[in-house]
Design a protein around this nucleic acid. Sequence first.
DNA 1: GGGTCTATATATAAACC
DNA 2: TGGTTTATATATAGACC
Lengths: 73, 73
Amino acid sequence: MVRGKTVIKRIEDKTRRQVTFSKRRSGLFKKARELAVLCDVQIGVLVFSSTGRLYEYSNTRDMYIFWNKDGQG
Amino acid sequence: MVRGKTVIKRIEDKTRRQVTFSKRRSGLFKKARELAVLCDVQIGVLVFSSTGRLYEYSNTRDMYIFWNKDGQG
DNA sequence: GGGTCTATATATAAACC
DNA sequence: TGGTTTATATATAGACC
C-alpha cells in the first residue's frame, strides 16, 4: 500500500511474510467485526497458518468448524 | 468512510444496511483472498445474513463448517 | 515478535443511474 | 437491486524501535 503498489502473490521472504500476516490478519478480523455489527449478521473467520497455528473470529455460537489436518489442502 | 466518519453500530435503515452489507462483504472476501495468497495460509470465511442466506470464501478443502440454524445465536 | 510513524494505496458512504 | 462516481476514511508497506 505504500512504496509501490502491492502485487497479490506469495511473499517469499519469510520475515516480510510473517509481518504482513500479522498486520493483515488483524485488519481482516477488524473488518469482520465491523460487518457483523453494522449489518447484524453472523460471521465466522478461520485462519490456519503454515506453522499450524489457528486464529479465529466469530460472533455466533451457531457455527461449528472442523479441520482435517491430514487433508490435502 | 465519506460524508462523516462511520460509527460501528447496527445500521437501522434496512436499505442502507443491505447496501453496506453487499459492499463490505465483497471487501471482506477480497481481503481474505489477498491474505491467503500473500501469506500462504488457509482461510475460511462464512457470513450468514439475517435473511438466511449463506455467503462463503475458502481456499482450502481441509475445513468443514456446520451451522446450527436452530441455535441460539 | 509487537508497537510507532508516515506516505500512499484501498475501501467505501453517499448520491446518482 | 446492481453499477458508477467521488470525496474521504482506513488499511497497510516499509523503516525503525
